[in-house]
Nucleic acid binder design. Sequence first.
DNA 1: CGAAAAGTTGAGGATCGTCAACATCTGTGG
DNA 2: CCACAGATGTTGACGATCCTCAACTTTTCG
Lengths: 244, 244
Amino acid sequence: MSESCLIAKLDHYVDLTVSDKDLLGKLEDEEWHVDRKHQLRDGGDEVDSLYVVKTGWLFSYTILPDGRRQVLQLHYPGDIVGIPDLAFEHATTAIETLTGGCLCPFPKKALDEIFEQSPRVTALLFSIGMVDHVVLLDRIRAISRMSAMERLAHFLLEIQSRLRITDKDIGAEFELPLSQDVIGDAIGLTNVYVSKSFARMEERGDIRRDGRKIEICREDELRELCDFHDRYMRIDTSWFPEDA
Amino acid sequence: MSESCLIAKLDHYVDLTVSDKDLLGKLEDEEWHVDRKHQLRDGGDEVDSLYVVKTGWLFSYTILPDGRRQVLQLHYPGDIVGIPDLAFEHATTAIETLTGGCLCPFPKKALDEIFEQSPRVTALLFSIGMVDHVVLLDRIRAISRMSAMERLAHFLLEIQSRLRITDKDIGAEFELPLSQDVIGDAIGLTNVYVSKSFARMEERGDIRRDGRKIEICREDELRELCDFHDRYMRIDTSWFPEDA
DNA sequence: CGAAAAGTTGAGGATCGTCAACATCTGTGG
DNA sequence: CCACAGATGTTGACGATCCTCAACTTTTCG
């Protein structure tokens, strides 16, 4: 078994036992390679499978009645995509790849074994779900109440802090494989205004851009600008059950 | 033990066994009565307890650096409040009551027993978390992309569909114990624009108002207007483990 | 190398915010 | 039962942010 990003991500938060790792490893038995711009599923599709992201980025979105698109979530290596659809027979969002990559599909039922065998891993998955929840609340706050530039700053910082979990030594610079169209659809702006906001941030010296590389030059100022909080760094594991 | 709203809510989705109900009942051992406008906790507070809402409404929110408020979630009888903070040592949001009511506090650690003893209830709690997640995604979509009136319509329909879970025979009319200030802070509008949007909806005959009673007169048209989907009604339990 | 996709820039316009005055409702104490 | 104060809701004038449209440039990819 090659090194798993999912296990790496979870291991960031607690020390997993060998049997925990075995349990999680089963989710990655099967491997799929997918191209860039491949649509995994469409909203409304009948689905029973989730995917562990091994490499590559994806995003989920929905289309509004007038044809516009709302990007809802980005998915990185180590994430499980499709989890929100656990509760539904039909997909609530469409999912598409942003880059080529490798995915590991598994059926919903595979979670049973985790719930049955390891309360500790269960608590961890539950907690990570809550982290994602709080990240969404932060995003609602940004979209609902902040200016275009603040929203964009928040978006970039959120991505950076997520990347740091699975990629310890990400510095100020990282690759952002998103068109300005996608960014706009994620934070409720048009591609035009995203471009203008990027230009302003660059003028101010907050960031630098080179193609799709982004460098965050003044992280502290940007954090203050959009009142950003890193939700990924640490979680409270004090209440977790011991493994049997 | 008086009838529990939490159990009623969960029982809406699956048939709970007697031992499942016992397990859940323990979360409601202790009872607190709280007044209207009581702040349960502030953002940043060190917290270890969650609450089952027995009666009354609450909301969670954060304050922006400039003093404005973002309302993040409403909490109804049957909900567990504070769940997002499971993953953190310090509260990410403040929580306040909208009405007087009765709450049942319990420590995070009380969830251990559920995770250890009932994979089935665990799966259900997990799934309900995912429902809440999808509800947030819907709200992001509404706030990010829709007009003031559409956002307001979406907000009302979301509340109505949530109320239907614990209150089977809610019809077109229900009590809404929220000031327009709070509504505005929830959907990213000012109280002034909420008032104007309400007035327009009433003119069009979509709703009627009487004090804080709301009647949804043309539910189907409103659903279409804001592309509303009921996420609460049913969840997919097909993959749930059997209880030991 | 050429075509399509993505990004930039500017002009004009719509939606919603701000401010302010006023109206109405709610609850409390006299 | 009434008086009053504070909270809540309404309405209008004016302005800012962001959208739309459109032409153009640059980058990407087959």
